[in-house]
Structure formats: structure tokens, C-alpha cells
């Protein structure tokens, strides 16, 4: 007797994940893309093709908001890349130093903010920076530098950078952990071999460790990119849906939220909202593809 050619066990084991993922990720994603091709006329849904996208990029008001949000998003990402990842690498390098005492304590303390809710982080930092009750102005006052304090979250020039730094504070634990793990996985033999060739201390980090953790840095960069371009919560918690002052902190996520669900007297427009969500999807897709095909494939891997 030959057994059935269909390998049932594969289907059975794949089914739960495939079904759940399809139901809550793939279907909504394609439905959002579909929704962006429609609009509502007299309470009825009408197919309009790419009209919503033409409004989004062609209408001066819509396109101005869109490019402003996209620009802010890039700045938000830029600050993360510039601050979060170097600090993460530095912390990981320090933590992996075997002579450091209390390293488990530091590791935990630095990682804890990552598990906090955005709402708590946004609210706590708002209080810390508050010009009225905040401890930041009080501390500066105490050392006679009170005049240096600015209402950082309330000024157009500083608010977005401030929020980006708050987000860095919250998430610096993640690159730290990933790079820490990568550093630990470097075999001692390689470092010892380097020592024999006279490579020690800082040059061991630059010449041996850094090339070996580059793939991790690449993964962190792409995770940061996706996370930042999907960001919404922190801005919403700290500045509200209008992303003040004067839309200086408006990113694609808040712009999409305002459009999709409406705000105050503005009624929601699911179709334009979907168009923005689709644009976000395409931007993230392009970024991820650039990384996958442009960088990942060229990265050299080392087998130990």
C-alpha cells in the first residue's frame, strides 16, 4: 500500500499560522490597498481608480501636508540612526567588557523603558519637560542656568528633535541587546589570534568586532526604519492628533490617523486615509527592498 502523496502533517502544522496571519495581516493589508481606490459619493462607495492618489500628490494642500509629514519622518529616522544606534553599539561594547561590574543591572535598567507603554513615556516626559512643573527647568534653575530652558515640546524648531530623542531614550535598549548578543557570539579564538598579531584594545573593536557585528547593525537599521515610518503612538500621546506646534511633529502615522478617523469637527475619510496608508506601505516596501537587495546581499558572512 502506498501512502497518500499529500503530506497532511505539513498542511496541518502550517494551517494555524497561515490562517491567523492571513486573517489579521494579509487580508486587512490588501483591503486597505483596495479601499484607497474608492471614494464615497452620497453615502455610496464608488470606484475612482487612482483619483485619491492624484488628490494626495496633486492638490497643493494635501501634498504639502504629505511632504511635510514625510520630511518629518525622515528627520525622525535620521535622529534615531545618528543617536540611537551609535549609543546602542557603545553601550553593548561597554557591557560586553568582562571587567565591568554590575553589568546585569545596567543592562536591565537600560532595557526597561523599552517595555513601557508609549502613553506612559509620552506623559512622563511631558511632565519632566513641562515649563511649569517640570524638573528640567527646575534643575537648570538650581544651577543658575534657568535662562537656557526652552519649552522644547512647544517650539516648532525643537519639538520634533525632542520627541525623537525621547523615542531614542525609550528604545536604545533594543540595538544594545542585539549587538550585545552579536558581540558575545564572537569566539574568543579570533580575538586571541588578533592579539597574537598585535591587535588589541580599540583597534580590536574597529578591526575585528565591528566587521563581525555589521549584519546586526544592518538588521537594526532596517527595524528602526520600519518602526519609525510606522510610528504614531508617541507623537499622539505627547502632542495630540494635530501634531503641534503648527504640524512640526506631524509624521505619516498621525497624518493618516487624522485623515482616516477624523478629528474634532473633521469627519473621517477612510478612503483618503487608506491612500495615505498605501503610500506609507510603498515607502516602507521600497526602503526594505533597498536594504534586502542593495545591502544584505553584499554583506559578507563569517562562519566560525
Amino acid at each position: 500500500m502506498r501512502t497518500s502523496r499529500i503530506k497532511w502533517h505539513i498542511i496541518v502544522f502550517l494551517a494555524p499560522a497561515v490562517l491567523v496571519y492571513t486573517a489579521i495581516m494579509i487580508v486587512p493589508l490588501f483591503n486597505t490597498l483596495r479601499l484607497s481606490l474608492f471614494t464615497e459619493v452620497d453615502q455610496e462607495r464608488v470606484f475612482v481608480g487612482l483619483e485619491n492618489f492624484r488628490t494626495l500628490f496633486g492638490d497643493p494642500r494635501w501634498s504639502e501636508s504629505f511632504w511635510n509629514a514625510l520630511g518629518n519622518n525622515f528627520w525622525f529616522f535620521f535622529i534615531h540612526m545618528l543617536v540611537q544606534n551609535p549609543i546602542g553599539i557603545l553601550l553593548a561594547a561597554l557591557l560586553s567588557n568582562p571587567r565591568l561590574r554590575f553589568s546585569a543591572l545596567y543592562r536591565t535598567a537600560i532595557f526597561v523603558p523599552t517595555i513601557l507603554s508609549f502613553v506612559i513615556v509620552g506623559f512622563a516626559w511631558k511632565l519632566i519637560l513641562s515649563p511649569i512643573w517640570g524638573i528640567a527647568p527646575e534643575m537648570l534653575d538650581a544651577v543658575g542656568l534657568g535662562f537656557l530652558y526652552q519649552p522644547w515640546l512647544g517650539l516648532e524648531e525643537t519639538s520634533l528633535t525632542t520627541l525623537a530623542l525621547i523615542s531614542v531614550w525609550q528604545f536604545v535598549g533594543i540595538p544594545m541587546m542585539l549587538i550585545y548578543a552579536a558581540l558575545l557570539s564572537i569566539p574568543d579564538e579570533i580575538l586571541e589570534a588578533g592579539e597574537c598579531d598585535g591587535i588589541t584594545g580599540m583597534s580590536a573593536f574597529w578591526k575585528i568586532k565591528l566587521p563581525l557585528i555589521l549584519p546586526s547593525i544592518g538588521i537594526i537599521s532596517i527595524l528602526t526604519f520600519v518602526g519609525n515610518f510606522n510610528a504614531f503612538d508617541l507623537i499622539y500621546a505627547a502632542q495630540g492628533a494635530l501634531a503641534g506646534p503648527n504640524y512640526a511633529t506631524d509624521i505619516l502615522g498621525t497624518f493618516m490617523y487624522r485623515t482616516f478617523f477624523g478629528f474634532q469637527l473633521q469627519l473621517g475619510d477612510p478612503h483618503m486615509g487608506s491612500a495615505i496608508a498605501s503610500a506609507m506601505f510603498v515607502i516602507i516596501l521600497i526602503g526594505v527592498c533597498l536594504y534586502l537587495f542593495g545591502i544584505q546581499t553584499r554583506m559578507r558572512r563569517y562562519q566560525f
Binding site: 511631558k126 519637560l129 513641562s130 515649563p131 511649569i132 512643573w133 527647568p137 530652558y149 526652552q150 519649552p151 522644547w152 515640546l153 512647544g154 517650539l155 506646534p245
Partner: peptide
């Protein structure tokens, strides 16, 4: 409006 009003929220104002 007092110092730092740019970052002053609605509950801040009520409390002040």
C-alpha cells in the same frame, strides 16, 4: 501668558 506657554497644556492652565 507666562513663561513657556508654548508647551503649557490645558490641565496646566487650569491648575495654574
Amino acid at each position: 501668558l507666562g513663561r513657556g506657554f508654548e508647551a503649557q497644556t490645558y490641565p496646566d492652565s487650569q491648575n495654574l
